[in-house]
């Protein structure tokens, strides 16, 4: 079996082979293949800039892998600011001994994910470290996007805005938990890992008045809603029954005592929109197969500022708190 060796990160001939034979082959674009010390970019409008490191274990999971995650994660952070993802950097930290076939699969998966937004990887770096220094492979990506709609912000929620979830919640966290613990509970559960830009672009094109937008990654829906409530000093009132959770996720949470709303997502986003635009936003989202269950889950009020209230279907209510403690490390 061909594996990655320390020499592949040494900067010499083997490194060159790796870069040309694998990275340039799959990420090929005019800027990257110039192979300068830095990529030279031309951006006319205001830009958004973000970075994220990906350490998920296991590196392959149902519905995705660390490569898909590394692209979708950074592209989604740009999209959530109303920015069209343009350029990404990609830095690989690889543990010696990683099978070449696995690295190839990861790189192919990144290329496939890039195509969904049209973003390009324009610069990169490869390090190979001795066994035990990282767990198989870590990837860092940074990204630049062109702002297509300004003013989207966690500080921007207004009383009366409606809250929309793009789909059911908790899939990624539950999938990784199952893979990590070797649980054969259900074969049907897949991570929601997905590039969200096409849906965001459609919302912007549809002139939806978006106050705030965030992908519900670590900390899940609970974290997004609490951050919004605190940042904008508003109360978010959420109808518990409107938040969709698939049977598999609910079942795993029952078994382990987790809350589905605390579980990470990698292709699920939450929006706050002006009330008159909410129905239109839902209709636009539902055209995409990764948002076909988009629905309104709540609204912004002033009842208890900086708090999230969950209303049950039978007349009681409670606070939805930020997840605490060690939920599940290295999910992304």
């Amino acid at each position: 079996m061909k594996v990655v060796q320390l020499s592949h990160g040494g900067g010499g001939e083997e490194t060159n082979t790796l870069i040309h034979g694998l990275f340039y082959k799959h990420f090929s674009n005019e800027i990257l293949i110039k192979a300068e010390d830095a990529a030279v970019l031309e951006v006319k409008n205001k830009i958004a800039f973000t970075t994220d490191s990906f350490t998920v274990s296991p590196i392959f999971f149902n519905g995705g892998d660390i490569g898909k995650l590394a692209v979708a994660g950074t592209v989604n952070d740009l999209a959530m600011m109303g920015a069209k993802p343009l350029y990404l950097s990609s830095a690989f930290m690889i543990e010696e001994g990683l099978a070449f076939s696995e690295l190839t699969q990861i790189v192919e998966s990144m290329a496939k994910e890039l195509a969904k937004s049209g973003a390009k990887i324009v610069c990169g770096d490869t390090k190979v470290v001795p066994r035990g220094s990282v767990d198989k492979i870590f990837i860092n990506t940074a990204g630049i996007g062109e702002i297509m709609k300004e003013g989207i912000s966690v500080l921007n929620l207004h009383e009366g805005d409606l809250i929309i979830a793009s789909r059911d919640v908790g899939r990624h966290g539950a999938t990784v938990l199952m893979a990590r613990e070797n649980l054969d509970v259900t074969a049907d559960l897949q991570s929601d890992c997905e590039t969200l830009w096409p849906a965001v672009e459609a919302l912007i094109d549809g002139k939806i008045s978006i106050s705030a937008m965030r992908d519900a990654t670590r900390g899940g829906l609970s974290a997004v809603l609490n951050e919004w409530a605190q940042s904008s000093n508003v109360c978010l009132e959420v109808e518990e029954d409107a938040v969709q959770i698939c049977d598999e996720v609910r079942g795993i949470c029952e078994m382990f005592g987790f809350e589905p709303m605390d579980f990470a997502n990698e292709g699920t986003f939450i929006l706050a929109v002006a009330p008159e635009d909410a129905e239109a936003a839902v209709t636009i989202l539902q055209q995409f197969d990764f948002c076909e269950n988009a629905s309104i889950i709540g609204r912004v009020t002033q009842k208890y500022p900086a708090k999230v209230i969950l209303r049950s279907g039978y007349g009681s209510s409670r606070f939805l708190d930020l997840p605490k403690g060690e939920l599940l490390p290295r999910i992304c």
């Binding site: 049977d247 609910r250 029952e254 049950s312 279907g313 039978y314």
Partner: peptide
């Protein structure tokens, strides 16, 4: 038998309302 059969009915909003009454 599915896992959800173990809890679904026991969280039914109508049943909860009716019992509370």
């Amino acid at each position: 038998l599915q896992l959800k059969d173990l809890y679904d009915g026991f969280r039914n909003p109508d049943t909860i309302r009716s019992l509370a009454k």
